[in-house]
């Protein structure tokens, strides 16, 4: 078989695994949260049933062309992040379509889905969607600052914007992880991760029970199933992004699953403990400590290079 087709099929298989792991991880986290509250929680297979249910609804309505395109853009953002990031370290077939400079593209894809969703959701005309979008964009602008500073610090440290090279530099024992070689950048990046995961206390965009459910308020049936698919993928891929940057990546699928689980669990754990911020507090928080630590990380990296 042609190598490019083979590679494409492997990437699709990876996407399939990541999607299902995303669903499983989501329901597992919900069960953990339920146990914390003394409940049993949803069955472990609930996300799959919800997907089938949503697709099997019989009436649809549309608010226009952009309303259709919004969830598609969001899904492209999630899949794009998956495509251009190596899954396993040092593996040719599991390196997906990563290339030198993929780190910059990934940062772009992070915001791409959000902007697409903003277009689609505002087309729906629901005031709750508009509130969610304005909050989301304000918070994301604040989250981007410490995250970009952390990435710049790591890029200066390793002299590269390529994921594979950053991963290679972290191999050979956990003391080589960025977490230990560049702790300041790691702290800034992991604090930014809390915002990127948009879990409590930074779940201002969807803000359940406050602005009913934010941008997806008007989305239903298959539209919602596309959004659910994306959120399953993006939770894993975001966790993988931070795993690759700070925790030395994964060399087997088993390690991939373990590490993404724990990276995601950090944000869930903090979400269990802290209630939701207000938007002005959230923006101020991101522009205060994480940003200061990020600037120091860049300065230190520039000085020591």
């Amino acid at each position: 078989m042609d190598y490019s087709i083979q590679k494409f099929l492997w990437t699709l298989l990876g996407l399939f695994i990541v999607l299902n792991w995303g669903f499983l991880m989501g329901s597992t986290m919900r069960r953990i949260g339920a146990r914390l509250a003394g409940r049993v929680g949803v069955p472990i297979y609930q996300p799959w049933i919800d997907m089938i249910k949503m697709i099997s609804l019989r009436t649809y309505l549309s608010h226009g062309v952009l309303y259709y395109i919004g969830p598609v853009f969001r899904l492209v953002g999630g899949i794009g992040m998956f495509l251009f990031m190596p899954v396993l370290v040092g593996s040719e077939i599991w390196s997906n379509y990563s290339f030198s400079g993929d780190l910059i593209l990934l940062l772009y894809f992070q915001s791409f889905g959000m902007l697409g969703m903003a277009l689609g959701a505002s087309e729906s005309g629901s005031p709750n969607a508009t509130i969610g979008i304005s909050r989301g964009l304000a918070q994301f602008a604040a989250v981007e600052v410490p995250m970009t500073l952390a990435v710049i610090a790591i890029a200066i440290q390793h002299h590269t914007f390529s994921f594979s090279e950053i991963l290679d530099a972290q191999q050979g024992g956990f003391m080589n992880w960025t977490l230990f070689t560049n702790p300041l950048a790691s702290i800034a990046g992991m604090l930014a991760m809390l915002g990127a995961m948009s879990h409590s206390p930074f779940n201002l965009v969807k803000a359940p029970n406050e602005i009913p459910i934010g941008p997806p308020t008007e989305y239903h049936s298959s539209f919602l199933s596309v959004l659910r698919t994306n959120s399953a993928i993006i939770h894993v891929v975001e966790a993988a992004l931070f795993m690759n940057l700070f925790f030395g990546g994964a060399d087997t699928w088993f390690m991939y699953i373990i590490k993404t689980f724990f990276v995601y669990f950090i944000s869930v754990f903090i979400g269990m403990v802290f209630p939701r911020f207000k938007i002005e507090d959230s923006v101020r928080w991101f522009l205060k400590w994480p940003t200061v630590i990020g600037i120091i990380a860049v300065l230190v990296a520039a000085y020591w290079k």
């Binding site: 409940r39 049993v40 929680g41 949803v42 009913p212 308020t217 008007e218 239903h220």
Partner: peptide, 23 residues
């Protein structure tokens, strides 16, 4: 129903905030 004593999530019953997404 969402408290530990009754916990409807066990039965696949979940609360939604918007009519577009509820059955």
């Amino acid at each position: 129903l969402v408290t530990p004593r009754y916990d409807m999530f066990r039965f696949g019953v979940q609360m939604r905030a918007t009519p577009r997404q509820s059955n």
